[in-house]
């Protein structure tokens, strides 16, 4: 068979290429540009090589922010994933309560991030906030603007409140796709509640759960708005996560070079963790 070569087809791809170029590639390359050079304005650049990268990778400040970030993401995943699965399992599968539950679950997801931060800020204020005041009047010394532990507890709680619903909804979708036959067969086979969860529900939820964990990992690893509004990264630097630190360096100190290098490292870390996680889950699938 003779193939006709026709280069005109490129024109059909062109709009997408242009779009991707302007929305992803060019901005990213600008960052790369800043990451390897020094500038004093006026569009004058000096080549710096890997200086900024070395500086960032050696700085204690970056290490601390990265550790805080990993700890935070680890904590919220450890809470939200089991909690989300648990809630999804207890949600009704039929009847009028289904839509009520679904709407209630979706509500936190619809609230803008800065509003969530502001809500929790007011909610947690030690003197007048409902949460803060209640805790203090119960004799628990709580002040998220002064105590690192309180600040951490509040940021974690806020994220759990805001995002557990996402995991619940995804798991619920996975659970709803299990035909009744499976439960009936398990019942006949004398399977315990745990065995039903382990051998029927969990395997059927695996795909959606993979997506849910990936989404929650990425979002929480890049979290900015909510803790910024709630604690502003404080007290001290105790809730300064990577994004908050990045903004401080780029816009607060105007250190464009180190900020650009840090952005790239940050991006590569997210990419690497997602890739490792996804590959592991999928390899498991193939076996």
């Amino acid at each position: 068979m003779n193939k006709t070569l026709n280069q005109k087809a490129w024109w059909l791809v062109a709009p997408v290429l242009v779009l991707v170029a302007f929305n992803a590639f060019i901005p990213l390359m600008t960052v790369v540009n800043y990451a390897f050079q020094e500038t004093f304005g006026n569009n004058v650049f000096f080549w710096e090589g890997t200086t900024w990268f070395e500086q960032v990778l050696r700085s204690d400040r970056f290490h601390d922010a990265l550790i805080r970030q990993l700890l935070y993401t680890g904590m919220i995943l450890a809470i939200e994933v089991p909690l989300g699965i648990g809630v999804a399992l207890t949600m009704p599968r039929k009847g009028p309560w289904v839509s009520v539950c679904l709407v209630l679950m979706a509500l936190p997801l619809l609230i803008p991030w800065n509003v969530v931060g502001a809500m929790w800020n007011i909610f947690a204020l030690p003197d007048i906030g409902l949460l803060g005041h209640t805790l203090n009047s119960m004799g628990i010394d709580y002040n998220f603007t002064r105590q690192p532990v309180s600040a951490w507890m509040t940021t974690v709680l806020m994220d759990v409140w805001h995002w557990t619903s996402l995991i619940v909804l995804l798991c619920y979708a996975g659970l709803s796709s299990i035909p009744d036959d499976y439960y009936q067969a398990a019942n006949i086979d004398g399977a315990s509640r745990w065995a039903i969860f382990r051998y029927i529900q969990l395997p059927k939820m695996k795909r959606v759960l993979t997506i849910a964990i990936l989404l929650r990992f990425m979002d929480s690893f890049m979290i900015y708005t909510e803790p910024f509004v709630l604690t502003g990264g404080g007290p001290g630097n105790t809730t300064t996560f990577l994004s908050i630190d990045l903004v401080k360096i780029a816009l607060g100190q105007f250190d464009l070079g180190p900020a650009a290098a840090m952005s790239l490292i940050y991006f590569l870390v997210v990419l690497l963790i997602c890739w490792v996680f996804y590959t592991l889950m999928m390899r498991n699938e193939e076996q």
Binding site: P179, D181, Q184, N187, I200, P203
Partner: peptide, 17 residues
């Protein structure tokens, strides 16, 4: 069901994946 000692096979296959 589990106390009745009944085995049942359904129309569509159910396997534990």
């Amino acid at each position: 069901t589990p106390d009745r000692r009944i085995a049942q096979v359904f129309q569509f296959p159910v396997v534990y994946d």
